[in-house]
Design a protein around this nucleic acid. Structure first.
Lengths: 348, 348
DNA sequence: TTGTATGCGTTATCAT
DNA sequence: ATGATAACGCATACAA
């Protein structure tokens, strides 16, 4: 690889001049400039980012920490992050934590060693994540939280209104006349908690003082957990007429379980998801609440850029984007047979 | 950030000694070693990777070039790459090209500037990709091709037997008695071409000399294209009894189109995908041929490590992994009405 | 308008 | 067994 020295020699100038023409950091006569550029071209010179980073103490790299690249929500936000970073000449380091504390801690070290300029964190609020965020912050590395736990409130955040997401989902089935609505909640997830809150609000508004939503708990946002709870859906107080799942992957699992139980969607049970990541692949198409993951990724990097370019201090900024209901075909009116014990005609 | 100098001062030794104890690069007395480690601990010292990279000419970073993070196949391989890289203390730079030549070219520059130690390329065989691969190679940067075009045959490759994938998919429906089999092919994709070849082989073996598969062409591996072709499935020679899609995303789109047309899977038409990425979310569960994307990612990094540690020259190595049929519920026996006028009982 | 020289934080060579 | 010091490739303060 040609170095700046080679270019300088070939162009018959000093390395300072070469640096100047490359970075436009000071005036340089037109003819020398062209000589330099010619040399650059001839030698196929590429500035060494490591050297530059060392000198400038900026690596032009950001990291994106995410719990799992297999949940389709994250590739979407990752793409947003990558697009924005690419446009701003930053590289993106992916850090897949699988929510394992050991990996998170290891990544904390790594990112510090790598001198990344900023970090976008998407993750449930594990203590390891809190430690990581604060550790980065202590070293002056900007952190933006994307759709994370509300407890990370001393950082810039790009959030979506989770309460509203839950509200929209529940409201949708209520609109269709459902009154026995179940919510499938993920334990220890603040996101899920907020979504549940929205569900509860919608029910309360629709039927003041009435029995609240039926809540079923699972351990994480996976299809497997959805399947598991789906198989047990009728165990507790009998089958609900509508189910709101804390996310789409759960909904997929639930749908599968219902299918295996011979219960059909939406004829017997209506189903709504949140995230709108898998809607198209479910038959019938899943009604879901879309979260603008891609935009959130872009926005997160925009914030990061702000902080990296000097806006050191100042109040933490929170941007909240809006979820949006995307109706599919998994919700319909409750049928007589599931509503009442009497006369079960097949209302075809 | 504390530097090696600070540590040296605090421990009352030279920086050479500190470096030695950190890297285990030479003997150092037990007591000084402990003093150094104490200082490291006290100052929370983290070696600067940029400086190290500059000196050693190795950045401990690899890049993963992929066409789109939204197709679930790629997150799977990305995870394999990331896992293996993480275990070997390498960071992963994601380079999402969207198969846009401009982005690919820009990434070529970037990777050279960043001095990545190796690159895993997953991509269709665009000329920009060829250029990138050879350019990296010219600079001595190891390249491993993961499931890419066969034309990149001067590089190490981790492939899957695409012909066999197609064969397995077709064989599956043939086993069920289907004789009118359509293949949905993606134009300009060598992967799709090989899969088609497998389909053709299976048909030829099953019905020598008979009319080959019905081939329908689309422009890329997306659900949208699948939907489009699905709506036109019966246009050409009438409805086939079974459809093999070049990948799962296409299958999802096809399934959706069929649903919209009132044609049910598998009662009216059997459907098989390839990749096994979305099987679980389709109802009925999609029968598909699994590609070991995760293992391929791991294997690719293993090869990369080999090349990065000295195995400079030598024949390009190709590893071929095996696809595997994963039956779902989207395939069944052809029904009388779609099959032949004469007597085929509905077996079971 | 351009060149010289220093230092960024490491590793590695050469001494001692 | 350990210390000085040069060099990695670049940006930049200071000279000229």
């Amino acid at each position: 690889m040609a170095t700046i020295k080679d270019v300088a020699k070939k162009a018959g100038v000093s390395i300072a001049t070469v640096s100047a023409v490359i970075n436009g950091t000071r005036f340089v006569a037109e003819d020398t400039r062209t000589r330099v550029l010619a040399a650059v071209d001839a030698l196929n010179y590429q500035p060494n980012r490591m050297a530059r980073a060392l000198k400038q103490k900026r690596s032009q790299m950001i990291a994106h920490i995410l719990p799992s690249v297999m949940n389709p929500f994250f590739p979407a936000s990752l793409k947003g992050v990558e697009d924005a970073a690419f446009a701003a000449d930053y590289s993106v380091l992916v850090c897949n934590t699988e929510t394992e504390p050991a990996r998170i801690e290891r990544y904390a070290e790594l990112l510090l060693e790598t001198q990344v300029d900023g970090v976008v964190i998407t993750s449930p609020g594990l203590t390891a994540i809190h430690a990581l965020a604060h550790r980065l912050d202590d070293h002056g590395i900007p952190v933006v939280v994307l759709s994370g736990p509300r407890s990370l409130d001393s950082f810039d955040r790009v959030l979506v209104d989770d309460v509203k997401s839950g509200y929209l989902a529940a409201d949708h089935v209520l609109d269709y006349g459902h009154r026995r609505v179940a919510f499938v909640h993920v334990r220890h997830s603040t996101t899920s908690m907020h979504r549940m809150e929205g569900v509860v609000q919608a029910l309360e508004r629709c039927m003041p003082g009435k029995k609240p939503a039926l809540v079923l708990e699972v351990d994480n946002f996976t299809e497997q957990e959805g399947y598991r709870i789906g198989m047990n859906l009728s165990k507790k107080d009998g089958l609900p007429t509508a189910v709101v799942a804390a996310n789409d992957m759960l909904a997929v699992g639930i749908s599968e379980a219902l299918h295996d139980l011979g219960i059909s969607v939406p004829e017997d049970v209506s189903l709504v998801g949140i995230d709108n990541t898998m809607a198209a692949s479910l038959r019938p198409r899943l009604s879901s609440v879309a979260i603008p993951a891609y935009e959130m990724g872009k926005e997160a990097v925009a914030r990061l850029k702000g902080r990296m370019n000097g806006v050191k201090a100042g109040e933490p900024l929170t941007i909240t984007l809006n979820p949006q209901l995307v109706p599919g075909h998994s919700v319909t009116h409750p049928t007589v047979r599931t509503a009442l014990p009497s006369g079960r005609g097949a209302p075809q």
